[in-house]
Design a protein around this nucleic acid. Structure first.
Lengths: 155, 155
DNA sequence: GGCAAACGGTTGCACGCGCAACTGTCACAG
DNA sequence: CTGTGACAGTTGCGCGTGCAACCGTTTGCC
């Protein structure tokens, strides 16, 4: 079946466009909170969240699982170390890599950060019924499958 | 109902994070195509798509409907004008604003661009069943509602 | 064992972006 | 008709980012 004069491109219903706009909007909203409450920029927030979840992971792991560029990760880590929110210990097995851990004050911040994020997510999804939420998450699953964004195994 | 010791934050299932990662991935994929095939950067592509759809719209309209910063829009337009892909005509009613239109060669490019984008979108959604796609789009609708991202009325 | 390729992580550089300040125009109040 | 505030759009500037090149380390091959 060939469609002559192809279908029109309606930006408002074009999924890549919608994803971008949504992501930008959600990010901006959250980042205002992170910055105001914790003085964390987005890359730093992501590192905190990843290290808080995968204790002892490496910079490489953060880059893989967040899909941030490794230089962005490197600089975010440098900031967090300077602020004594995370610390780095050399790996015994492979001296190239260094394991990341939250410091005491890093854990304190993380503990405040998590419920804030979850509350925000709940608000975001509040307009969906439970079944709509399931359907939406399934859609996200399929997209991630297609793009090879499966969860990176924790080290 | 209060959850003591709050739920954990699993980044891989945290919707704002997933949206960001997906958007970045999709964007990067598409932008490689745009750049390679048409030498268009992302902001330029968005302007082309918006002006192609809403003939005679203004820079302000592009900024509103794409949620790009107005300076980003301004510079993208400057590039496109230099390449003679769009042109600008002063408004008779309000001399502050200028209406944007695709030139002949802009229309030619747009005509090539649309089917490519649609094909890509189809590929992206190929792993979903028809009902999954509907459910996913409904989720996007709800999110946009919540964030006030309703479609901007075309001028 | 020794060399080359691959990897974890960092840094110099160029560039695109957001912010704030600006120009020119319009709308509305007095 | 005069002034004030709002708006469309542009530009200078500082900063974060991605790219490429780099260092130190490890792995694999002969």
């Amino acid at each position: 079946m060939t469609v002559r004069y192809g279908a029109a491109l309606r930006l408002a219903s074009f999924v890549p466009f919608r994803l971008n706009r949504l992501a930008a909007e959600v990010s901006q909203h959250l980042s205002a909170i992170y910055r105001g409450r914790f003085a964390l920029e987005i890359p730093e927030w992501r590192v905190m969240a990843t290290v808080g979840q995968d204790h002892g992971c490496t910079a490489q792991h953060v880059a893989d699982s967040t899909r941030m560029h490794k230089t962005r990760v490197s600089r975010a880590i440098a900031h967090l170390i300077r602020r004594r929110l995370i610390e780095r210990v050399a790996s015994t097995r492979d001296r190239r890599e260094r394991h990341l851990r939250l410091t005491r004050s890093g854990r304190r911040m993380y503990a405040q950060l998590v419920p804030l994020a979850l509350r925000r997510e709940r608000a975001l999804l509040a307009r969906m019924s439970a079944s709509e939420r399931r359907g939406f998450r399934r859609g996200l699953d399929r997209l991630e499958e297609f793009l090879g964004l499966q969860e990176v195994r924790t080290p």
